[in-house]
Write a protein that binds this DNA or RNA. Structure first.
Length: 402
DNA sequence: CAGAGCCATCCAGACATGCT
DNA sequence: AGCATGTCTGGATGGCTCTG
């Protein structure tokens, strides 16, 4: 991330925008007018664009300033929320404690976020490109300012206290808003934007590649980054603001109140076996015919395994003879090729992996064996205009594959 | 409102050393 | 191995007054 601007400057920017006057902003902030003018000039240098039009009647936001102002106000709101959490921890009221952006620096917040994310000072320092002692000092001085422990030393690393985790989450989102502000002021000039996508297993192979090509063609200057990881990791990254959207199976209901799921289509799961399997020679199949065979199933705890247990295992009426648990399509494919085992896979996945020739779909009636596929976003995510268009294109590209 | 000049403060790196 | 702390250093930053 680009160097985060001084948080006090951001507050002065917000005050100046609200009052349409540097002098009145200075009065409210108990600073001199030149201090405000310099703060704004410094922000304009950092963001690389003019944020205000200076007129004799006052200071007025430019279009880029307006876009940035929305981001900055949201970041300051998040920091106000952080102040409330800190105040609650110390038993004070938020009104009695000074705003957190006046006490702490963006560097301290970045340090906390990086330490919580990476689980250690050394790894956080590597992530931030700073010395370990600098990150350590920044995070520990933040603790002193907050007046409560935020990080605990555990064995060979550190882990956050509940307040530390909470603050890191809020600060991370605030820093992302500011970072998005950098992206937007830049995007307005160069027609560049970034969309960070989390890809769940089915989406990785079967849905995203085509959708990414479509978005890439429509937005040639855009940077698309894809993170593939298990659902809990992606959900955490989404809530921290490290990714913008998750594409793939929905949990329905959404697993947290701060994320929203948007259903795009249902993906049907099929019972498959190797080509030439004895069951493929049978004219008619009943669910009970599947019982004698081994099964290759998703690992315990995954949403797909729950679906398998509720649809297939319960339809068979007994636990399959032997189950091999794997989430890897490569392993599943190999096992199917070498045995008479059965598996529960999506037709899209079979097609995407070009495995049609070696797998046969068994004509078994199974009720409820479909998964909701769609987009998951943060409830308070505010995409830039370009990002919103990119998501819209992504949405229609995914729908085209329904 | 903007800019120059000044000064105090802050920040981060480097290094050393001790602790768990 | 990785965290904690202290000290020193140079450079960057921030806020002030004064002036136009």
């Amino acid at each position: 991330m680009a160097r985060v601007p001084n948080l006090r400057h951001l507050r002065l920017f917000s005050l100046t925008a609200r009052h349409r006057s540097g002098r009145r902003a200075a009065e409210e902030a108990h600073l001199s007018q030149p201090a405000v003018a310099q703060a704004i000039a410094s922000l304009e240098r950092q963001f690389g664009c003019q944020l205000f039009e200076r007129r004799t009647t006052g200071m007025f936001l430019t279009p880029q300033g307006r876009a940035l102002c929305a981001r900055i106000d949201r970041a300051l709101d998040l920091l106000a929320l952080a102040s409330e959490r800190v105040a609650a921890e110390s038993g004070r009221t938020a009104a009695k404690s000074p705003p957190i952006e006046r006490l702490v620096s963006a560097g301290q917040l970045s340090a906390l976020v990086a330490v919580v994310r990476s689980g250690g000072f050394s790894s956080a320092a590597a992530e931030l490109g700073q010395a370990q002692s600098s990150v350590h000092r920044a995070a520990r001085s933040l603790e002193q300012l907050v007046g409560a422990p935020l990080l605990r030393h555990m064995g060979s690393g550190v882990e956050p206290t509940p307040l530390g985790a909470d603050l890191a989450n809020i600060a991370g989102r605030a820093l992302r808003e500011i970072e998005a502000g950098f992206g937007e002021t830049k995007a307005d000039r160069a027609q560049e934007a970034q969309l960070r996508i989390g890809a769940l297993p089915l989406a990785q192979a079967a849905i995203l590649p085509e959708a990414l090509v479509t978005v890439g063609e429509r937005f040639p200057g855009a940077v698309l980054s894809v993170m593939d990881a298990p659902y809990p990791t992606l959900l955490n990254a989404l809530r921290l603001g490290d990714i913008d959207v998750i594409v793939g199976a929905l949990r329905n209901p959404a697993p947290a109140s701060d994320v929203v799921e948007e259903l795009l289509f249902f993906d049907r799961r099929l019972v498959v076996c190797r080509a030439g399997h004895p069951l493929t020679k049978r004219g008619h199949l009943d669910v009970s015919d599947l019982a004698p065979y081994d099964w290759i199933v998703p690992r315990k705890g995954t949403a797909l395994r729950l679906l398998f247990d509720s649809v297939v295992a319960s339809a068979i009426g007994e636990r399959p003879r032997r189950m091999i648990e794997t989430d890897s399509f490569v392993v599943l494919r190999g096992l199917l090729r070498l045995s008479d085992a059965l598996a529960f896979v999506s037709r899209r996945r079979i097609k995407a992996e070009r495995a049609e020739g070696e797998m046969a779909v068994l004509p078994v009636e199974l009720r409820g064996c479909q998964r909701a596929i769609g987009l998951t976003t943060r409830r308070d995510w505010h995409p830039s205009g370009l990002q919103a268009s990119m998501v819209e294109t992504l949405r229609s590209a995914v729908l085209q594959q329904a």
